[in-house]
C-alpha cells in the first residue's frame, strides 16, 4: 500500500469538482455533462476546464438557455440508461426545471414499480454574492421534502470532490449544490481516489457549550463565529451536514446530547427551513433542547451590498444568537 492515501494536494473548489467529473467520465462512458457553457468554455465557474479537450462535444454538451428542457432531457437520458450531469448555473433557475426533476425523475423509480430510475445529477450554485433577488437564493429546503430526491451541499473542496463522485455513482436523482462564496478558497484534497458517502455529517470543530449545525458556505461562517466566541469562553461545536437528504441524524443527536444546545444556521429562509428540519429530527429522537435558528431575514436578497449583507447571516449575527442561546 502506498502513502498516497495520506497525501493531499491543494486545489481550488472548481478543480475538485472537475477532477471528480473527469475521473467518473473516464471510468464510466455513460456519464456526460450538459448545460449552458459547459463545453469549450469550460463552465461558468471554470469547473470543467480541460474536459472538453478530453471528452469532446458529445459528452461535454452545451445547451441553449432552456433549463426546463435541459433538466428534462437529462432526466429522460438517465431513464434510458445514461448518467447525465445537468448543470444549472444558478439555483434560482432550477425552479424552471422542477417538473422534470420533481414530477418525473424523483418519482420514476416509484411510479414504475422499480422498473425505471433516473440516475441524474443536477449540479447548481446557490448563495448571495451581489447578483440580486433571482440569482442568490438557497432553496435546498424546498428540495429535501421531495421523496426520492437526494440533496448534498459540500463546504470544502475535499467534500466537493468526494460528494460529486458519489452523486455520479448514485442511482439518483441527486441535486448537488455549490456556493459562489466557496469558490475563492482552495483546500486540500486526497491524492488517492476517494468517495464520500451520502448521509454522513462531519464535525468541523469540537465544542462543549452548544452545537452549530450548518451546510455549504455557512459552515465557514459557523467556524468564524466559533472563533469569535472562544474569546468569550463560549465553546461551539460545528457540524457540517454535507448531505441534507439523507440527513445524518445520528451524528446530529450525539452532538446535541453532548452540548445540550442547538443553533441551526442556514443562508436560506428559516420558515420550513433546513434548520427547522434538523431541530425536529433531533428533538423527535432525544427530546427538546434549547434551540435558536438563524437564516436569511424574511426578504428577497438584493444586489445592493448593504441590503444583501443585512439579509444573509454573518458571524456577528450568529454570535449574538449563540449568546442568547447560551443564556437559556
Amino acid at each position: 500500500m502506498s502513502n498516497d492515501q495520506f497525501l493531499t494536494t491543494r486545489m481550488f473548489f472548481r478543480e475538485a469538482v472537475g477532477r471528480a467529473v473527469r475521473e467518473e467520465m473516464e471510468a464510466d462512458d455513460r456519464v456526460l455533462v450538459l448545460g449552458q457553457d459547459v463545453g469549450a468554455f469550460g463552465g461558468s465557474y471554470r469547473e470543467f476546464d480541460g474536459l472538453f479537450k478530453i471528452f469532446g462535444p458529445e459528452r461535454m454538451r452545451d445547451t441553449p438557455v432552456a433549463e426546463a428542457a435541459a433538466v428534462g432531457i437529462a432526466a429522460g437520458a438517465a431513464a434510458a440508461g445514461l448518467r447525465p450531469l445537468c448543470v444549472i448555473t444558478y439555483m434560482d433557475f432550477l425552479m424552471i426545471g422542477f417538473d422534470a426533476l420533481i414530477n418525473y425523475a424523483a418519482k420514476l423509480r416509484y411510479k414504475s414499480g422499480g422498473r425505471l430510475s433516473a440516475p441524474l445529477v443536477v449540479k447548481t450554485t446557490a448563495g448571495a454574492q451581489g447578483q440580486g433577488v433571482a440569482h442568490s437564493q438557497c432553496i435546498e429546503a424546498w428540495l429535501i421534502s421531495v421523496p426520492g430526491l437526494k440533496v448534498v451541499a459540500p463546504s470544502t473542496p475535499e467534500d466537493a470532490y468526494g460528494l460529486m463522485k458519489s452523486a455520479l455513482r448514485s442511482d439518483g436523482p441527486v441535486v448537488y449544490i455549490d456556493h459562489k462564496r466557496l469558490f475563492p478558497a482552495p483546500g486540500n484534497v486526497p491524492v488517492a481516489e476517494t468517495v464520500i458517502p451520502f448521509g454522513k455529517a462531519a464535525i468541523r470543530r469540537r465544542g462543549v457549550d452548544l452545537t452549530i449545525v450548518a451546510h455549504s458556505y455557512m459552515v465557514r461562517v459557523a467556524l468564524e463565529t466559533a472563533g469569535l466566541l472562544e474569546a468569550e469562553d463560549l465553546s461551539c461545536e460545528v457540524v457540517d451536514l454535507r448531505s441534507l437528504a439523507p440527513m445524518d441524524v445520528n451524528t446530529l443527536c450525539r452532538s446535541v446530547e453532548r452540548t445540550g444546545r442547538l443553533l441551526t444556521l442556514e443562508e436560506g429562509q428559516v420558515t420550513c427551513g433546513i434548520g427547522t428540519e434538523v431541530a425536529t429530527r433531533i428533538f423527535e429522537r432525544i427530546g427538546v433542547r434549547p434551540w435558536i435558528r438563524v437564516g436569511a431575514l424574511p426578504a428577497p436578497v438584493s444586489s445592493n451590498p448593504v441590503l444583501e449583507a443585512a439579509c444573509v447571516p454573518n458571524a456577528d449575527r450568529v454570535a449574538q444568537a449563540a449568546r442568547t442561546l447560551a443564556a437559556r
Partner: peptide, 19 residues
C-alpha cells in the same frame, strides 16, 4: 403534466443517438 414528457422523450432520443 401537459407538455412535460416532450423533453423527457428528447432525453431518451439522446440516449438512442449516443448509443
Amino acid at each position: 403534466v401537459v407538455g412535460g414528457n416532450i423533453s423527457i422523450a428528447a432525453g431518451v432520443a439522446l440516449e438512442r443517438k449516443l448509443g
